[in-house]
Structure formats: structure tokens, C-alpha cells
Amino acid sequence: MTGRVAAVDCGTNSVRLLVADVVDGTLTDLERRMEIVRLGQGVDRTGRLAPDALERTFTAMRGYRKLIDQHGAVATRVVATSATRDAENRREFVDGVREIFGVVPEVITGAEEAELSFTGATRSLSEGAPYLVVDIGGGSTEFVVGSEHAEAALSVDIGCVRLTERHLKEAGDPPGAVALEAVVADIEAALDLVTHSVPVERAHTLVGLAGSVTTVAGIALGLPEYDPERIHHARISAQDVHEVTRRLLAMTHRERAEIGVMHPGRVDVIGAGALILDRIVRRFAFSQVVVSEHDILDGIAWKLA
């Protein structure tokens, strides 16, 4: 089909909306929204979605439903990822989403998430294949290698919210060396799994997605405020990734909050997110990362069309 479609992505940290027109192989944004709702609050520890986290998510979704109706989208797809995969009470989430949107949310597997992210991130890239697409989320990170399509993928349970709650929440401000070493150990263990499952050595270009990556890029570019047009397809050197990560991990919460490109809901988790990107660049010896503002939302929209 072609026409006006709506894609909703509900992750561990944020819920996002894309309303777009898809005509003759071109995707044109009408609305692209993001709200940090921290749906995955406490899931790593309790295995359940917290009532207040569910209500924050449903409140954001009700606003999205109004926008979808205003634009007259002819098809809507709601996708949920890491936090809801892990939660014992995900039926409460499913029922709430059905009530709001009139469709059942798809609690997709890590492999499905990887395929959608790859499609969204690489559709507008014209050179540099094969790609390693890395989508750093709140609860998990997806690794996908491919050229025109995803050829190998793995989702691992490292994400900025999960690692922050596991190791950094009570680790001082800024966090101490012991806590950071624990984060690195978890990341490296996950990267061992990636090495054994995904042919990273085939990739010529590292493509980074999601808020941790785009925030690091905005800081590296010295932007006074968040500017998606400047960030999209920016090439950030490995040296800049390492330097920004070092600075973030040495800052207090207040200092991070004062960074112009920083979303308030990302202040407490950006250190872990940046460290994931930093260790990926180091482990797989990429000289730079190509940053993409296009991601799983765009992949959902393309699949709808």
C-alpha cells in the first residue's frame, strides 16, 4: 500500500510516534514525536511493569492517538520491545494499548526489532555497505549486519536504563570506578555473544541509532541545542566518542542536565548509553560512527507501506 501511516514504538525508556506519507518509494514525515516515559522502570529487578510507568506510557499514547486521528492515518502499527518482552504482567500493557489505539501491540522479538531498525536506518544510505547497525535502547541493544537487508542479527540485554539501574543508581555522583567496571564487564560479556553470532568483521560502516547515540553526537558536534537535521548522518570519530563518554562519566547529574542537547529524561542514563557505544567502537575497531535519526519507526512505516 501507499498512503498515510502511523508507527508507534514503545521501548524501555521512551514511546515514540511517526506519522508519515509513503508515496512512490519516498517517506515524508508529518509528525515525529518522542516522550520519555521509562516504561522499563524496575523491570530488570522485579520482572514486572510498574503501575506508574504504565500510566505514564498510556498518557503519552493517548496524546499520540489524537495526532494520528488529526492526520487521518489509514493504518497504524504499535510495536513494543525489550521491557515488555521481559515483563510478567505484559497483558496489562497489551490491554491498555488496545483500548487506546484499537489495535493489539506487537511485542516483537529482538530479531524482529533488529530487522525493522536496519530497514529504517539504511534505506536512505547510498554508500558504505555492508553496515553494522547498532540500536542502543533502554533495555537491550540490537546488532545487525547486512547490505540491502539484514543478514545476521542479535539482540543482547544491555541498555542504558538496564545498566544504570543495575550498577549506577547508587554508585555516587559521578559514579565510582568499581561501578563503571561492572558496567563495562556486562557490556563486554554481551559483545562476546555478538562476536560469536554476528559477522561484525564484514561490516565497513558502523551506523548508530537511538537517543544515547544521537545525544553523544550532539555533544561531539558542539550543538547548543538538539538539532536532528545536523545530527542525522553526522560522522562522529572514534576519538570524539571516547572523549564525550569520558566527560559524561566524570560529570555530576546537575552538570549533565545543563548540556544543551540533553533531553531531561536522559540525564540519568546517558552515561551508561555512551559507555555502550564507546565499548562497541573500541571492541570492533571502527574509526567512526554514522549517526542516524531514522530507525525502527521508519522501518515500521516502510513495512506498513
Rank of each mutant, 00 (worst) to 15 (best):
N89Y: 03
Q239G: 14
I231V: 15
F286G: 05
D24K: 14
L191W: 08
V269S: 05
E92R: 08
G42M: 01
G110Y: 13
Q239Y: 11
E151C: 09
V207K: 06
R48T: 11
E88P: 00
A7W: 04
V269T: 14
A272L: 01
R32I: 01
L180T: 06
G137E: 02
S287T: 13
V133S: 03
K66A: 15
R91Y: 01
P228M: 06
V134P: 00
P264M: 07
I36T: 12
S14H: 03
T2L: 11
T119Y: 04
A257Y: 01
D295F: 06
D69G: 13
D29Y: 12
G271N: 01
G139A: 06
W302C: 07
A210Q: 05
V144S: 12
Y131W: 08
V19T: 10
V291G: 08
A234D: 04
R16V: 07
G47E: 04
A177V: 13
P264F: 10
G176C: 08
L209S: 10
E113S: 03
G299M: 06
R85M: 00
V97I: 00
L249T: 10
L277I: 01
V133H: 11
D21L: 13
H204Y: 02
G146H: 07
M34L: 14
I68H: 00
R123I: 13
L154H: 06
F58I: 02
H242L: 12
L18V: 06
L193N: 15
E127R: 15
E55I: 05
I187T: 08
V194M: 09
I280M: 03
P199G: 06
F284Y: 15
D295A: 15
G25E: 07
L193E: 15
F143A: 11
G11V: 00
L54V: 03
I296H: 09
T252M: 04
A274V: 00
A80D: 02
G159F: 11
A210C: 14
T76C: 05
E142T: 11
G42A: 04
T46E: 07
V290W: 02
I270D: 00
V290M: 11
V184D: 15
I276P: 01
L297Q: 05
R48D: 12
G218T: 09
Q239E: 15
A234G: 09
A272H: 08
G110S: 07
R246F: 12
D192E: 15
L54W: 00
H167C: 05
G96P: 00
R202G: 02
E151Q: 12
E255Q: 15
G222R: 11
T252W: 05
E113V: 07
A272V: 07
D278S: 15
V97N: 00
L67G: 08
A177M: 11
G273W: 03
V107S: 03
D135S: 09
A185L: 10
G137W: 02
R38G: 01
E106H: 09
A111I: 12
S126K: 15
G260F: 10
R166C: 06
L54N: 06
V79F: 03
V94W: 03
Y64M: 08
L180D: 06
T28C: 10
I158K: 05
Q70R: 12
R283H: 12
